[in-house]
Amino acid sequence: MYGKGRIIPALLIFLGLMTFPLWYNAGFAHQAPKPEKPAEYKECVRPTQEMRTSHMVMLNQWRDDILREDGARKGVTADGTEYVRSLQNGCMHCHANKKKFCDTCHTYTAVKPYCWDCHLEPKEAM
């Protein structure tokens, strides 16, 4: 093998970069996020799996519907419960704590939704 002095260090750097996640995570304890569920309600406006994957699409749709199309401000769940199509008055009515609900998964997956550029985070009762 020729050029050992350059090629072997270069290969080691390459391997180090490629395996970066393997050694970066080693020192930390990993916990899957556990968003706090509301005590008094059992069901959300849509099935849980759909909320997990697509809640952001629904929120976006509500915004467009209500602010841009003059759409209905109220919706009805599958089992007939009426709810407000609103982040602060709807979602946060049950999921009152942003830190213990929204942020758990968003921080875990590096999602920084721009909801809070305009919306206020409900204050804790002090």
Binding site: H30, A32, P33, T53, C105, Y108, T109, V111
Partner: peptide, 12 residues
């Protein structure tokens, strides 16, 4: 759309 949290649990 997929459940990103479930995926991260797998990838991590």
């Amino acid at each position: 759309r997929v459940d990103v949290v479930a995926i991260k649990q797998l990838t991590l």
